[in-house]
Each structure stands twice: as structure tokens, then as C-alpha cells.
Simulated scan of single mutants.
Amino acid sequence: MEPLLQSWRFWALLSAAFAALTAVLAKLGVSDVPSDVATFLRTLVILGLTGAILVASGQAHGLATVPGRSALFLVLSGLATGASWLCYFRALSLGEAARVAPLDKLSVVLVAIFGVVFLGEHLSGPNWLGVGLIAAGAVLVAYRG
């Protein structure tokens, strides 16, 4: 068995836990603040935190060695992240966190589709069933019945 800190499953589950906290804390945070201002403030915190991690871990020098192709895709990913966060915070300012977050997690479904179409990844029948159940679950949770 691989060490816990080397397990992608461990980090993915930790990411899910922090994402859940993000939704609840962000919903509380946007109650008295315009959503774009809230997104900007959160981005500053993330920038400071990741900058401190780079410096503390001695990885800051790696910024100068990022290949051009990687930099391009990371910049595009950053733009997509920013757009996602702006939309997410706007949705949270208008709707209930318990309904906004599941629709936001339809990104899981889109990643599966994009991974197959653009990255050549392969999903089995049970994998696609799971993707379908995630989609159905997100829609059902978001449904106001």
C-alpha cells in the first residue's frame, strides 16, 4: 500500500472536504459583500498562501523554469479558474449553497467527457454509470421540489 501522503485518493478526498468548506464559508462571506469583491479577496488569500508554500518549501526558483507550453496552459487554466470562481460566487450570492454546489460539481461530469474527448482517457461502463449518477444526483439535489 502506498504511503498516505503519496496517494491521489487521499488528496482528492481532502480536496473535496476543503471544497465543501469553501461553499459554506463563501456563502457566509458573500452575504454582505459583492460577489466579485469576495472572489478577489479569496484570490488574494490563495496567492499569499501558495506563495508562502513555494518560499517555505524552496520551490520558488521553479517559476523561472516553467516551459512555455506549460505556462500557456497554466495561464489558460488560471483564466478558467477565475471565471469559474466569479460565476460560483455570483451563484452563491443568489442561491442556496446546498443547491449551488451540486450544480457546480457537474464539472466532474464535464471533466470525464473532456478527458475522453481531448485527453484520450478511457472510462469503463461502470465509470460512465458513475458519471451519469453524479449528473443525476446533482440535478436532483439542485431541484426545488
Rank of each mutant, 00 (worst) to 15 (best):
A71Q: 10
A64R: 14
V55F: 11
T43Y: 08
R42P: 00
C87M: 13
V75N: 06
T65K: 13
G145C: 01
A80G: 13
G51P: 00
R99A: 09
L44A: 11
E96Q: 10
A91V: 03
M1K: 04
D32L: 11
A91G: 06
E96P: 01
L119M: 14
S84F: 14
S7L: 06
L47G: 03
A23R: 05
A91F: 03
S7E: 02
G132L: 11
G29I: 05
V66A: 08
V131S: 07
L63G: 05
T39L: 01
G125C: 01
L133Y: 14
V33N: 01
A60E: 12
A64K: 09
W128F: 10
G125P: 01
V66C: 10
I134P: 00
A142M: 06
L79D: 05
P34W: 03
G58W: 12
V37F: 11
V66R: 03
S35C: 04
S124E: 13
I53L: 15
W85C: 01
V24R: 05
L21E: 02
G125L: 12
L94C: 12
L92M: 10
S31N: 04
L133N: 11
A91P: 04
L94D: 09
L106I: 03
L41S: 12
V108G: 05
G48M: 06
D32P: 00
L21P: 00
L103Y: 01
L5D: 03
L140K: 03
H122P: 00
L25N: 08
A138I: 00
R90C: 00
G132S: 10
A19H: 09
A56Q: 13
R9L: 13
G51N: 04
R42C: 02
E96W: 03
Q59M: 11
V33T: 12
P126Q: 03
R42G: 09
A138N: 06
W8F: 12
A71M: 13
F114P: 00
N127I: 01
P34R: 06
G130Q: 08
T50Q: 08
G48E: 07
V131L: 06
Y88P: 00
W8N: 08
W11F: 11
F118V: 02
S107P: 00
Q59K: 15
A142T: 04
G115Q: 02
G58M: 12
T22E: 13
R9Y: 06
F10N: 08
D32Q: 13
H61Y: 03
A17L: 15
A101G: 00
L74Y: 14
P126E: 04
L103T: 02
L103W: 04
S31I: 08
R99C: 06
V24G: 00
A12Q: 09
L13S: 12
A16G: 14
P3A: 13
L72D: 01
G48P: 05
H61D: 13
L94F: 07
